[in-house]
Simulated assay, not measured.
Amino acid sequence: MTLTFGQYNTLAAMRRQTTFDQLLPRTGFGHDLVNGYIEFLFANGLINLIDRGDHIGYTITDTGRSSLIEYEIANPELAIKRDDNMAYVSEMVFRSKDI
Rank of each mutant, 00 (worst) to 15 (best):
M1S: 08
M1A: 13
L3W: 11
T4E: 10
F5K: 02
G6V: 08
Q7P: 05
Q7G: 07
Y8A: 02
N9G: 00
T10K: 09
A12L: 01
A13Y: 01
M14T: 07
R16W: 10
R16S: 10
D21P: 03
D21I: 07
L23R: 06
L23N: 11
L23P: 10
L24Q: 04
P25G: 00
R26P: 02
R26F: 01
R26V: 01
G28A: 01
F29Y: 15
F29L: 15
G30P: 05
H31S: 06
D32V: 07
L33W: 09
G36F: 11
G36P: 02
G36V: 11
F40P: 01
A43I: 00
I47M: 10
I47W: 05
L49F: 15
D51K: 12
R52E: 14
G53P: 09
H55W: 07
G57Q: 06
Y58S: 07
Y58I: 02
D62K: 13
D62E: 15
T63A: 15
G64L: 05
G64Y: 00
G64N: 00
R65C: 01
R65M: 10
R65F: 15
S67D: 03
L68Y: 01
I69Y: 00
E70M: 08
E72Q: 11
E72D: 12
I73E: 04
A74R: 15
N75A: 03
L78G: 00
L78V: 01
I80Q: 10
R82F: 03
R82P: 04
D83F: 13
D83M: 11
D84F: 11
D84Y: 10
M86D: 11
M86G: 02
V89Q: 11
S90H: 06
V93A: 11
F94C: 04
R95D: 13
K97H: 10
K97M: 07
